Computed example of a mutant assay.
Amino acid sequence: MSSSYLVALGSNQRHHSHGFPRDVVRVAMEELAALGKVTARSRVIATDPLGPARRCFANAALVLESEYDPPSLLKGLKQIERTFGRRQGRRWGDRVLDLDIVLWSGGVFAEPLLTIPHPEFRSRDFVLKPANEIAPAWRDPVTGLSVRQLCARV
């Protein structure tokens, strides 16, 4: 049974073969097709650093149709991050690639390593702006608000 996922992508470090963060995000969007069918992609936008990160980010979102359940998809996303050179480090630090499951067609999911909806997405314009381009009618199963409504509040 296939599920739909809204996935957020971000980068603020250059990659040795993919180039600048904007290019890293674009290549990562292609790589995500290994986990299912990409049915929608936002533009890549530039955003200010968050927390201890020092460099500006490139951010985007996509909708992925996948046979994977949420924990399996998370494993796949983490594997893609590692192939791009992502290393575990401090929260919100500089990174080559960050991939997050924001929303899932199955509603709410909660395990120690994964919470859907993403706990902080409602206050992050760098997630909501790209998401609003491709999935404005998707609803947050916790608040009942659409991505469009959440984006208007940020």
Rank of each mutant, 00 (worst) to 15 (best):
M1C: 09
S2Q: 15
S2P: 13
Y5Q: 09
V7N: 08
A8E: 01
L9W: 10
L9K: 03
L9C: 01
L9R: 00
L9I: 05
N12T: 03
N12L: 08
H15P: 08
H16R: 15
H16T: 14
H18C: 14
F20A: 13
F20N: 01
D23W: 06
V24S: 07
V24H: 08
V25I: 00
R26F: 05
R26T: 12
V27S: 11
M29A: 11
M29K: 07
E30F: 10
E31K: 13
L32D: 07
A34W: 11
A34V: 12
A34Y: 11
L35C: 13
G36Y: 00
V38M: 03
T39K: 04
T39R: 11
A40R: 15
V44E: 03
A46K: 14
A46W: 12
A46V: 14
T47S: 15
D48Y: 12
P49Q: 13
P49V: 13
P52G: 11
A53K: 03
R54N: 15
R54W: 12
R55D: 14
C56E: 14
F57C: 01
A58V: 05
N59Q: 06
N59E: 00
A60N: 05
A61K: 01
A61I: 05
L62H: 00
L62Y: 09
L64Y: 05
L64W: 02
E65L: 15
E65D: 15
S66K: 03
E67N: 14
L77K: 04
Q79Y: 11
Q79C: 10
I80V: 13
E81F: 06
E81R: 05
E81Y: 08
E81A: 10
R82C: 09
F84V: 09
G85Y: 07
R86Y: 05
R87P: 04
Q88Y: 05
G89R: 02
R90I: 13
R90K: 12
R91T: 12
G93P: 02
D94K: 10
V96I: 15
L97I: 07
L97D: 00
L99G: 07
L103H: 05
W104Y: 12
S105D: 10
G106H: 01
G107M: 08
G107I: 04
F109L: 07
L113M: 13
L113V: 03
I116V: 05
I116S: 01
P117W: 10
P117V: 04
P119V: 03
E120Q: 13
E120L: 12
R124K: 08
D125E: 14
F126T: 02
F126L: 02
V127Q: 00
K129W: 11
K129V: 15
N132M: 04
I134C: 10
I134H: 10
A137N: 15
A137D: 15
W138N: 06
R139E: 06
D140C: 04
D140A: 04
P141E: 02
P141I: 00
P141H: 03
V142C: 10
S146R: 05
V147N: 03
Q149D: 14
L150F: 11
L150P: 08
C151I: 06
R153F: 07
V154S: 13
V154K: 01
